[in-house]
């Protein structure tokens, strides 16, 4: 062993000591920023420290399971679904043309709080809002806004029997929406209907209900969603299962107003 090897080994054991001193913090994901680089650099070349960290990881990875289980708002699935479609469709053109980006921004309501990056398409817009301090002026109800770049609303559908439930997620100025429903009877046939202010009725589509009683599908209405007095789901026995008055109930957390007249009668 020459002098150079001795110095190398000393440096290595010094780093091993450092690693060993910080290994619990690393396993728990709370290493301080200034230690991170040295730790990772050593780890990449030291199988002993790597193995030690892996052993601790086995226990740490179980910690999230200790938490009691809580169900999120039922509309969350719909919001994620909608956002996923938006971001997926924006993905191939990561740098949108100015024209496209401008039109998206114009119709956008803005997220209720700046937390993570919402994708490159809107990053500039978010930063601009944050800089000029507009966040506080924006609506804070996430149910009625979205990160998706449109004026996205979640309409809570009122159930006729308090068993089932549903939401429509859509831009009221668009004909397209996503309907999500749960606790439906899968043995029944379900249809989506809409009524405008002149009492014209359209069957929009069949609602495909899975064996679990849940349904989620994209729905294209004949006209813009805000033009309807009522949108409802009807069973094949003629019972109205779910309904919402989109021009009144633009709030995901509030039930649709009760004065919305049941259709089909």
């Amino acid at each position: 062993m020459n002098d150079h090897d001795v110095i190398d080994n000393l440096a290595e054991s010094d780093d091993c000591l450092f690693c060993s001193d910080h290994i619990e913090e690393a396993a728990l994901g709370i290493l301080e920023a200034e230690d991170q680089e040295r730790f990772e650099h050593h780890l990449s070349g030291c199988s002993i420290c790597r193995a030690e960290l892996a052993r601790l990881d086995t226990a740490v990875q179980l910690l999230p399971f200790a938490v009691n289980q809580i169900e999120p708002d039922a509309a969350l699935k719909l919001r994620l679904h909608e956002r996923f479609l938006q971001e997926r469709d924006a993905e191939p053109t990561r740098i949108p043309s100015p024209r496209k980006s401008e039109s998206r921004i114009r119709g956008r309501k803005a997220p209720s709080r700046p937390m993570w990056t919402f994708g490159s398409v809107f990053a500039g817009f978010c930063v601009a809002l944050a800089v000029i301090g507009l966040w506080n002026l924006l609506p804070s109800n996430e149910s009625s806004t979205s990160m998706s770049g449109r004026n996205f609303q979640v309409y809570a559908m009122q159930s006729s029997d308090d068993q089932s439930g549903g939401h429509i997620g859509a831009d009221p100025d668009s004909k397209d929406g996503t309907m999500m429903a749960w606790n439906l009877d899968p043995s029944e046939k379900h249809e989506i209907w809409c009524v405008d202010h002149e009492d014209n009725r359209w069957k929009v589509d069949d609602l495909v209900v899975a064996d679990s009683g849940s349904a989620m599908q994209t729905v294209t209405f004949p006209k813009e969603i805000s033009t309807y007095k009522q949108i409802y789901v009807m069973r094949n026995d003629g019972t109205q299962e779910l309904s919402v008055a989109p021009n009144q109930a633009i709030n995901g957390d509030e039930p649709a107003p009760s004065e919305s007249t049941p259709a089909g009668d």
Binding site: P72, D73, L76, R79, L80, R83, F84, E87, S112, R113, M115, W116, E142, M147
Partner: peptide
């Protein structure tokens, strides 16, 4: 809850 729902979306994306 709001932040947790926001985080969940970011995690899934």
């Amino acid at each position: 809850r709001d932040q947790a729902e926001e985080l969940l979306q970011e995690v899934y994306l």
